[in-house]
Each structure stands twice: as C-alpha cells, then as structure tokens.
Design a protein around this nucleic acid. Structure first.
Lengths: 158, 158
DNA sequence: TCGATATACTTTGATTATCAAAGTAAAGTT
DNA sequence: AACTTTACTTTGATAATCAAAGTATATCGA
C-alpha cells in the first residue's frame, strides 16, 4: 500500500516537473534562442532571419517556393524576408536562366558567416545536453522528444 | 579499435538525431501548439491570448505589472492583449479599491473554460509522453530538459 | 503557332505582436 | 503643496504574417 502511494507520488512529481519544464521551454525557447543567437556580430538580423538563412544553407541555390515550404510560410511572406536579407547583405537573388520565372536564392559571404555562427550555437547546445547524459540515457531523450513530436503530429492530422 | 569507432558512430547518430529533433521542435512547437489548441470552440483567440489566460489563472485577480512580468513583455504590450480579451469576453478588468492606479484582471466564465481547455491539452500531452517512458527514463528526460534550460540560462546571463 | 491555363514570384491591404517613449492619473514623500 | 514615483494607457513605429490581386514566363492543346 505504502509502496503504491510512493510510486504514485514519484509519478506525480515527474508529471509536475515535466509540465513545468515543457510550459517554460515552449513559451520561452524562441526568445531564449534569439537572445543567445543574435550577438554583436549579427545584431541586424532576427531569429526569423536566421531560420531563413538556415534553410537556404550552404550547398546549392534554392528557389523561393521550396524555401517557403520548408519554413511553412507563404511565398509572399518569404519575399518580404528575402527583401530584408538582400538589403542587409546576407543573401543574393538570381533569376534562373532555364526558367526565368524562378528566383534562385543563395548566401553571400556574410550570410555564410551567419550560418556558421548559428551552427556553432546548435553544436554547443547539443554538446551541453549530451555532456550530462551517458549511454542509453541519450536514446531515452531521443525517444522522448520523438514522443513529443508524434503527439503534435497526431493532434494535427490535417 | 572497432569498438571505439562503433561508439563514436553511435554518438554521432545520437548527435544528429538530437540536432534534428531540437531544431524542428524549436522552430515549430508554437505553430503546432497553436493548431492543436485553437479549436472550433476557441477559434477567436490566438496562442498568445491563451498564454495570457494561462498566466491570469483561476485563483485570484492579478494586476497588469505582474502578468506582464510573467509573460516577459512590456505592460504596454499587455494592455493591448487585455483590450482584445476583454472585447472578446474572456477577461474582466477592475480598478483596485485600495489603490486606484492598479488594474485587476481576472477570467470570465468563458475565460475559465478556455483555461481548462488548455489544461486538458497539456495533460494529454504529458500523459502521451509519459506513457512511452518508464521508471528512470522519465528522470532522464527531466534531466535533459533541465540541461536545455540551463544552457539557455547560462548563455543569457544578463 | 496562338490562346488558354498553369506556375513562380511580387505586391497590396489587413491584422497581430511587439517596443520605446510620451501621456495620464493616483499615491507617496518631503 | 510641490515634487517624485508608480501603474497603467496611448501613440508611433517596426516586423511577421496571410489572402488575394497582379505580373511575367512557361506549358499545353487545338
């Protein structure tokens, strides 16, 4: 009887801890990330801009539609974001020669620097998390995060 | 030698998985939550509105400053949010009798319903996560999420 | 090959969230 | 009573967002 009560208490504690952590993380993660990411060197861009830069990436040129799809925004919204990034010198626009309707977007040198800055930030974060977990604990975390994602996916089955 | 390589590979896999999951979750969690939360019944409020409702809470009346502080926005921003919620019937405004500068805010019946709806959503989410984890796996998740939070806190030591 | 349709993107008009700074009213201080 | 502080609202500006209208180019069907 006592054992059962203890178990239930432990579960309740975990429940409360999880609830608390998830609420705080969800509500503040973007603000936190923005503050941590947008430093002196890249203070003229927003976290949003950084996500656009992240999706454009280092490899090949990307067209507007595919970037908008990755970011889950309309192409109109993206046009405005790209206008800003071009004005600030992070991004280049080019018309495709093959199909002149298509706009090809790529990072300038400055944009590439910003991309790498972001990458380092992610790397630090993941290493900070991994440092405290060992062996199968990592797998547990991955599994748990997948659960979070699955939960939202099944909730949003459009 | 081979063992070492295998270990390193496993770590790299965990690294990539974590990176992927965290990036997706961070970038989309608010959109996901909004879609999952703002249903037919409460379709005239945003996720932002819901967070205001969450902070106001069920217990006692709260003044503007304390709500703004919890939400980490300026009081001016909150004024606008509260204007909207009052207009839509989720929130009541009252002047404090003791100190007539102070505005006391509380939930209407409709606001209370919305609060409970949000609570159920969180409950479902946490139960969905907990269902798949057993025993100490829960502790691992809590620990890992704390690491994430600590990482941001130390990064943002303003 | 021409006209209709589709595609890729930009522009426009509207809404929401946000801040800093100025404004208003009440309370506290000297 | 005059000055300062506090609690909030208002104002003006900016950013992100969407839907819908507009523009230019490509494709398809007759």
């Amino acid at each position: 009887m006592i054992i059962k009560v203890k178990l239930v208490n432990a579960l309740n504690e975990a429940y409360d801890a999880l609830n608390d952590l998830l609420v705080k993380l969800f509500n503040n993660i973007l603000t936190y990330e923005e503050k941590a990411l947008i430093t002196d060197e890249f203070k003229d861009i927003s976290l949003n801009d950084m996500h656009v830069i992240e999706v454009i990436g280092l490899s090949q040129k990307k067209n507007m539609s595919s970037i908008a799809k990755s970011l889950e925004v309309t192409v109109g919204t993206l046009t405005i974001a790209i206008n800003n990034l071009v004005k600030k010198g992070y991004v280049k626009r080019m018309r495709s020669a093959k199909d002149r309707r298509v706009v090809l977007v790529s990072l300038t040198e400055k944009g590439t620097d910003a991309y790498k800055h972001h990458e380092v930030f992610h790397d630090e974060m993941i290493k900070a998390i991994m440092k405290r977990l060992e062996g199968e604990q990592l797998d547990v975390l991955v599994k748990a995060l997948n659960s979070v994602q699955d939960f939202f996916k099944t909730k949003n089955q459009d």
